[in-house]
């Protein structure tokens, strides 16, 4: 079970280095060299991962997803923050 680090919309997020990422049948699979673990980010997680290649505020990320996907703002915000919290707990992203 992955723990969840607290993330706020005012933070800036960026991919951590040291991960090998591959697309498999529409889903993103990642090997963390640092952790020695494999992860499946799924389709939506892969989309979010692509959008945080460069430093991006959590607020901008949510706004970008809202423009592309049919989802309520509160649902999108809560689920994206939860997902980023899991990535942060696994040290896959940097938050500032």
């Amino acid at each position: 079970m992955i723990e969840n680090q607290v993330v706020s919309v005012s933070q800036v997020v960026k991919q951590n280095e040291g991960n090998i990422v591959s697309d498999m049948d529409g889903e993103k699979v990642m090997l963390s060299i640092n952790k020695g673990k494999y992860y499946n980010l799924g389709e939506m997680g892969g989309e979010i991962w692509d959008q945080i290649k460069e430093p991006t505020s959590v607020k901008e990320l949510i706004e970008s997803l809202l423009a592309q996907y049919d989802v309520e703002e509160s649902e999108c915000r809560d689920q994206v923050i939860s997902f980023l919290g899991m990535l942060a707990s696994e040290e896959l992203i940097q938050l500032s």
């Binding site: 673990k37 980010l41 939506m44 997680g45 989309e47 592309q68 696994e90």
Partner: peptide
Amino acid sequence: MKREWKKPLLEVLDV
């Protein structure tokens, strides 16, 4: 036309 939203999940693969 907006795309269908799916909850983003992080799954640890047992490899």
